[in-house]
């Protein structure tokens, strides 16, 4: 309860602060539309050649793109800024302040930053998603919608856990700026359903960088492809990654404080 209140305080103050910078909103909006434009051109190029891509029709791929944008917006607004701040603080030592607070350290470092204007990606992505669903001309049942939401949530948890583990390596490596670019490059692969990639890459995008679960699996839920087994797998992997991230975080803090030295 206290944590929710605290997260809300950060969110409220973060938003209030960012609302002062309206220019950022327009820049962000422009960026969202450029991303949308390049995405649409990509789709259009593919469908001038073929009517299907790895078994996915045009509106289905549009749905994938919508989810990709929504998830990307969530990452950019809520996950990445926190991880970047964590990286900075490990580097300059001001993480000491976070670690001397009477709140769980992992939770605290995960809720401090929020980039409100990045949510334009989420809004644009949702619009794309709605258009795609209308084009699909299929009825989306309650269970399907529910499975979609659950898959999206699990995907978010996995991406967060993955990012946290990546960032936590800064405790040992100190300088890991390149990792941000690496992640963004890999995430860009999620623009397409991972099923179209060769198997080795598909496995990598599923289990090493959980892009498949963040984008493709929710899309499968919307397009009647999702098997209960996949959803169960997503659930299992989300829990596993969460526990693993927790473990790595603890290890990082221990090495930071020299408990093992």
């Amino acid at each position: 309860m206290k944590i929710i209140k605290l997260a809300w305080s950060y969110l409220r103050i973060g938003i209030a602060n960012e609302l002062q910078y309206r220019v950022n909103f327009f820049i962000q909006l422009l960026q969202s539309f450029i991303a949308l434009g390049t995405g649409l051109i990509g789709l259009w190029l593919v469908f001038t050649q073929t009517t299907q891509l790895g078994g996915w029709s045009q509106p289905e791929l549009l749905a994938v793109m919508g989810i990709y944008m929504v998830m990307g917006g969530v990452i950019q607004s809520a996950i990445q800024p926190n991880m970047q701040r964590l990286m900075d603080e490990i580097q300059d030592g001001s993480l000491d302040f976070a670690l001397t607070k009477p709140v769980d350290g992992q939770i605290l470092v995960s809720i401090r930053e929020f980039r409100f204007w990045q949510l334009t990606d989420v809004v644009v992505g949702l619009v794309v998603l709605v258009i795609a669903v209308v084009q699909l001309q299929e009825k989306i049942g309650v269970w399907q919608a529910l499975a979609f939401m659950v898959a999206l949530l699990l995907g978010g948890i996995m991406i967060y856990s993955f990012w946290l583990m990546l960032t936590t390596t800064a405790f040992w490596l100190i300088r890991i700026w390149e990792l941000v670019n690496l992640f963004q490059g890999l995430y860009a692969a999620g623009r397409w359903p991972v099923t179209i990639y060769p198997q080795w890459l598909r496995l990598g995008l599923t289990f090493i960088v959980p892009v498949a679960f963040a984008v493709t699996v929710p899309a499968e839920a919307l397009t009647n492809r999702l098997t209960p087994l996949t959803l169960l797998g997503a659930f299992g992997l989300a829990i596993l990654l969460m526990l693993l991230a927790r473990f790595v975080w603890r290890l990082g803090v221990r090495s930071y404080s020299g408990a093992s030295a």
């Binding site: 103050i13 209030a16 302040f97 607070k101 009477p102 605290l108």
Partner: peptide
Amino acid sequence: RSQMSWDLPALDSFELQRAIYG
């Protein structure tokens, strides 16, 4: 070293501190 958020007025950082310590 600083524990304030540089973009925020100090009053906001005070409020966050209140929330952290309950």
